[in-house]
Design a protein around this nucleic acid. Structure first.
Lengths: 234, 234
DNA sequence: TGTATACATATTGTATACGATTGACGAGGC
DNA sequence: GCCTCGTCAATCGTATACAATATGTATACA
């Protein structure tokens, strides 16, 4: 069994929460996790405390840690806040990007594309998460970064739960997202603030529409009777 | 010697950091603090982890915790971001406030006024912090709240360091701040979103001007020679 | 005199043991 | 039969001991 270092444990838990392998609201048992990561409870508790600080988990006195939930209020707030923060982050990224960060961003986009091509949904979601996190760090604004990080946690988890690989247009939407990323990279590199805001909002609309269509699908046919007759006729 | 519970320790450290009793960049020694709060290092470390999550301290591997610094980059970002977040928070507070929260807010304003009247600068700064934190919780937006909390930490600390009780107009400015708080309470209670945004931005301008005047005071007289003559003439 | 290396000291990180709190189950009383 | 209270198991919280790491200082050598 592999032995984990503390930061590996931290990353692995982040990863498992983002991929909804650990689903929202899931109870996190300290002894269980400390055994899983083969470390004692003391450092594991510190990891949980940090995850709480980052918004991944919530802890309550004498009742342990839970994966942060995603109830209806969270969703409402999310859709209300995300475009504003994303747009502002994008504008700032345009102003403050460094060459090294741009390289990172291109690399992240490569990984995202690769994951999409190999139809690995979870990996694609995580790569996408990383991409936008890099844009966030480009903005060099600790205050907005705190909002962004929390938005991203919920965004990535939603993308996972709202993903329908069977849907016919889903593949096309993801390809469009790749194109948008490329356009955003170019705009950031060129320092075109107004353009990158537009692109970011378009990117947001794409993602939002996809999630909305999952939550509010086309209604079932009202005319059940004729539907039944149709089947009987076969 | 008083024995502290964990949450008391947390609050006390927050308070000491906000009041710059623990100045930005100050090194936090675990054994020292655990002795001061008469608890063992294990829970104290967890307190520090949480403070890190909230943005009060920064920790680095094998090198302990420091009070979050306020260098020039932080200040720049602060002035860039604060008005937008404050305004958005205020608008949301207008929409989502509850009667209980309104009571809290009025109570906080009372405490603020009291502290100002008794010329207790540190207490006034903390009461002001609390006032705006309540407005934040009224907004009921976890994402923006993460930004707001961090902004407030730096804002409160700056107010403390940029405070000149000797300045002639300082007392008047604080009285104006009290009036603005009252107006904000009324606007939030009435649910007037546009108004509360205006008031919030005015409130911000007042605070910003005060800080700016501290950083960029009136320059010393260039004509040193005549100044010297003047003194000799006495 | 400057620099490098090795040792000493201080501080942080981890494991383990024990104490405290919560929640569940069952016995007893109403 | 239902409610209440007490005991028990499980889990969380804290203290302490020890290991690992970093920093300061002294000494040797160039």
């Amino acid at each position: 069994m592999k032995s984990f270092t503390k930061s590996e444990c931290l990353n692995d838990l982040r990863r498992r929460i983002l991929s909804t392998d650990l689903s929202p609201g899931h109870d996190l048992d300290e002894s269980g996790l400390s055994e899983y990561y083969s470390m004692s409870r003391t450092p594991l508790r510190e990891v949980l405390q940090r995850l709480q600080g980052e918004g991944y988990v919530v802890m309550s006195e004498n009742r342990g840690a839970k994966v942060a939930s995603m109830d209806i209020n969270v969703l409402r707030t999310f859709f209300q806040t995300a475009p504003m923060v994303y747009a502002n982050i994008a504008r700032l990224a345009c102003e403050n990007r460094t060459p090294a960060e741009l390289d990172d961003l291109k690399h992240a986009q490569m990984n995202f594309t690769k994951a999409v091509k190999s139809s690995d949904a979870a990996e694609a979601a995580l790569a996408n998460h990383k991409f936008h996190a890099i844009v966030g760090s480009m903005a060099a604004n600790t205050y907005l970064m705190a909002s962004l990080a929390r938005l991203q946690i919920d965004h990535t988890r939603m993308s996972q739960t709202f993903y329908r690989p069977s849907a016919p247009d889903e593949a096309m939407l993801v390809l469009k997202a790749i194109e948008q990323h490329d356009a955003m990279i170019a705009a950031i590199e060129a320092g075109e603030g107004a353009l990158v805001i537009d692109l970011t909002l378009q990117h947001w609309d794409l993602s939002r529409d996809r999630m909305e269509r999952y939550v509010r699908p086309d209604p079932l046919p009202v005319d059940i009777i004729s539907f039944k007759d149709q089947r009987d006729a076969i």
